[in-house]
Design a protein around this nucleic acid. Structure first.
Length: 741
DNA sequence: AGGGAAGTCGGTGGTACTCC
DNA sequence: GGAGTACCACCGACTTCCCT
């Protein structure tokens, strides 16, 4: 089995940051590799010997528990209250048994490593499983062709990058920078990347930028960010020194805050009131739209089969919970008087309560994605609690997943129900208790860390059918279904609701030994009629994908509709509306990459000043000439452009295909290879007609790279861009090694 | 009321496939 | 072979409903 021992991760962490000496580094790397291999072999051997005693016992306990639960359900009707109680008792027993087995607990982690380590483990397991899954799934035909497939090559590279990222996480370094670790000729300081600025150069430049207003790209913070990790002595010029397309330029005041959503906010640990307010307004609008949508949907759509109803429990005496909407949580919530923190972090405020607090009392709180700083704060609080209560990681996980009787909690911890949650919420101070709860619970999945052995693997037809049977039998009890199928709750839910279209796909063949599923769902290219239908339905319903899907007869799943619209159709539609003249028939042909398209793309992405390639928000590409193409398309185009640049760097430096060209983001000093890559990339942009250039450094062999890049261009690029490139003014930017044209 | 789970939507990375 | 399209799986946030 591909599970990795936790101490491996610790080893990774310990060795993640090494002396920069190349020879020593390589030797250490090799040693690491061998060490890992040895450990894995040892572990496999031990597991084989002991019959995987440790975790297997616990797993079995879990299985028995699940089975007990199932049995309990079988004895009575599934909707019977007694049965539910029995099932719950069985669950408790299972948990107790699992705990009694003891070996279920993962090996102790070093204090402070907390969830980080778990996430690293998770990633590693995922990788292992992926590999395993492929082995299992490979058909003979696939095997024949798989030996030297480029896909495998890619995956190999991807794995390599992933390993570096994992090590980086362990070392407390931004994973996006991981590839620098093995390809650096400069000192890397752990923690240097956790700050709010994109890089050291940025802070320098930003300071300079603050002095006077400047002409710059939107959101441009004074450096190339992702592209350059600018150090003044390496790159003496920044974008404002370079002639650029005026349409891409805006004048902005100094200290203009970057709007890049994923850039960590230096002020973030606890959000400043101003930021909170903005968030609130923005989210309020969005929420309102959503709420309205929800109401409308409820009115239009047939009533949802909730678990109870689906199980035929109409006859119960339970009355519908009285809605507290508009009452600020009834007596629980006092009228706000300026400081809402206490209520926010101690009361279980529902959406309506929060909305009212915000709308009527001006309460502000943060919503949306949790930042890294917030996660760190929460982790620290969890770790403090764990240390204080003398809990192991496993006990902690159990605690987070134990409800009801506090005595059932491990280690005699008898905390008030919400003490831990209140405590965590308090550590942030600006997030609703329920939001903190939901977020942290994601770190402690119900079924435990190993709940989803098949994570990442494709669903097979058999699994789909098993899922259908499980849904038929258990209703929408996704937790139990997940246990049955060895998949996570969310995975089952997603598969059923998004891919199988609530079972429509499987309608005809879900019985035991039943016929093959009738494929209601349509796949493949969308016809013009379908696209038109989607347009109309979107206009009618907005982003109610389930409704849209239903109105399309279920032939396209909600996910298909969503991705088709958001990734491909939406921007074309916007373009069509803005420029009706452009609408001359076939919508698919409305848009073509403009001349200089590649260069414009490079420009536009540079303007977003991403930290690294994962930080590029393609939806924010504002260049109107290329924006209509949609995020996915831009992503792919840029990816290919970068691949070309990588190729040129490899050729230039005589690197092997296996050698990774580091593109990773900011650092205190630029990586040598990244400088090369940046240079190649920017030459690429220049080659394709941008008035974009840069000062290079002595390491760059520009003419070779230029030649190789040109050689690597696609026919399409050549068709659209080359003519324009020939008209470029020469030598717009002078500098050592810069290519004049 | 507190806590838990389901429903829904959206973001994202990866990749297979088709078209040119 | 590159570009574009489509699909998939996972994850996260949020709301609503349900249960104790």
């Amino acid at each position: 089995m591909g599970k990795r021992h936790r101490s491996d991760a610790a080893t990774d962490a310990a060795t993640a940051v090494e002396p920069a000496d190349e020879g020593a580094r390589k030797a250490a790397k090799k040693q690491r590799k061998e060490e890992k291999k040895r450990k894995r072999l040892d572990k496999d051997a031990a597991a084989a010997e002991a019959g995987t005693a440790g975790t297997a016992e616990a797993d079995q306990a879990g299985l028995n528990g699940a089975q007990g639960e199932q049995d309990a359900g079988d004895e009575n009707t599934s909707d019977d209250r007694a049965a539910r109680k029995a099932a719950k008792a069985a669950r408790k027993e299972a948990k107790k048994a699992a705990k009694a087995a003891g070996n279920n607990a993962p090996p102790e982690q070093p204090a402070g490593s907390g969830i980080d380590s778990e996430q690293v483990e998770k990633k590693k397991r995922k990788k292992d499983r992926k590999g395993k899954g492929k082995e299992v799934e490979a058909t003979p035909e696939q095997d024949e062709t798989a030996t030297v497939s480029p896909v495998k090559e890619k995956r190999k590279k991807s794995k390599k990058r992933q390993a570096a990222a994992d090590a980086a996480i362990q070392a407390g370094i931004d994973p996006s920078l991981a590839s620098l670790l093995d390809d650096r000729d400069f000192p890397v300081y752990p923690g240097a990347f956790n700050g709010g600025v994109s890089n050291a150069g940025a802070s320098t430049s930003a300071a300079a930028a603050a002095a006077e207003p400047e002409v710059a790209y939107p959101n441009f913070n004074g450096s190339f960010g992702y592209f350059s990790a600018v150090q003044p002595h390496h790159y003496s010029q920044t974008l404002q020194d370079i002639p650029v397309d005026p349409s891409l330029i805006e004048v902005r005041a100094p200290n203009h805050a970057s709007t890049s959503a994923s850039l960590p906010d230096p002020q973030d640990p606890i959000v400043s009131p101003t930021v909170e307010h903005e968030v609130r307004l923005e989210d309020g609008e969005k929420r309102k739209a959503k709420d309205d949508k929800g109401k409308k949907k409820k009115a239009d759509a047939p009533p949802k089969k909730r678990k109870r109803a689906a199980a035929g429990e109409e006859g119960t005496t339970r009355t519908k919970r009285k809605k507290t909407q508009g009452t600020l949580g009834a007596e629980g919530v006092e009228a706000a008087k300026g400081d809402f923190t206490e209520q926010l972090v101690t009361k279980w405020l529902r959406a309506a309560d929060l909305k009212k607090l915000a709308d009527e009392h001006g309460a502000t709180y943060k919503s949306g994605k949790f930042s890294k700083a917030e996660d760190d704060t929460l982790r620290a609080a969890i770790e403090a609690f764990r240390a204080e209560q003398d809990l192991t990681q496993d006990e902690l996980a159990t605690l987070f997943n134990t409800k009801g009787d506090p005595k059932a909690k491990p280690n005699g911890v008898v905390a008030p129900q919400n003490e831990i949650w209140t405590r965590l919420a308090r550590s942030l101070g600006n997030r609703p208790l329920s939001a903190v709860y939901t977020h942290v619970k994601l770190w402690y999945p119900v079924g435990g860390k190993d709940e989803a052995e098949k994570k990442g693997e494709k669903w097979t037809k058999e699994e789909d059918e098993a899922l259908a049977r499980a849904v038929k039998e258990l209703g929408n009890s996704w937790v139990r279904i997940g246990q049955e199928l060895g998949r996570s709750r969310d995975s089952c839910k997603d598969r059923w609701t998004k891919q199988l279209q609530n079972g429509a796909v499987l309608k005809a063949g879900t019985g035991a030994g039943g016929a093959a599923p009738a494929t209601v769902k349509k796949q493949g290219k969308w016809s013009e009629e379908e696209e038109e239908q989607l347009r109309k339905l979107y206009k009618k319903h907005g982003a109610q994908w389930t409704v849209i899907s239903a109105e399309m007869g279920g032939a396209r799943t909600s996910t298909q509709c969503r991705t088709k619209w958001t990734d491909y159709l939406q921007r074309r539609e916007e373009k069509k509306e803005n420029e009706p003249a452009a609408d001359k028939g076939d919508a698919a042909n409305l848009w073509h990459w403009p001349k200089e398209g590649s260069a414009r793309l490079v420009h536009a992405i540079a303007a977003l000043d991403p930290k690294d390639k994962t930080d590029i928000d393609y939806k924010k590409v504002s260049d109107p000439e290329i924006a209509p193409q949609g995020a996915k398309n831009l992503r792919d185009r840029f990816r290919r452009l970068m691949e070309s640049a990588e190729k040129s760097v490899r050729e230039e430096k005589g690197m092997d295909e296996e050698d990774e060209v580091a593109f990773a983001g900011s650092s205190t000093l630029p990586s040598r290879s990244r400088r090369l890559t940046d240079a190649a990339l920017f030459r690429a942009g220049r080659h394709h007609g941008a008035t974009l250039g840069r000062v290079s450094n002595a390491d760059v062999a520009p003419r070779q790279a230029q030649a190789s890049f040109e050689g690597g261009q696609s026919r399409r690029f050549a068709k659209t861009d080359k003519v324009e490139a020939s008209r470029l003014p020469k030598g717009q930017v002078e500098g050592a090694g810069f290519v004049e044209r």
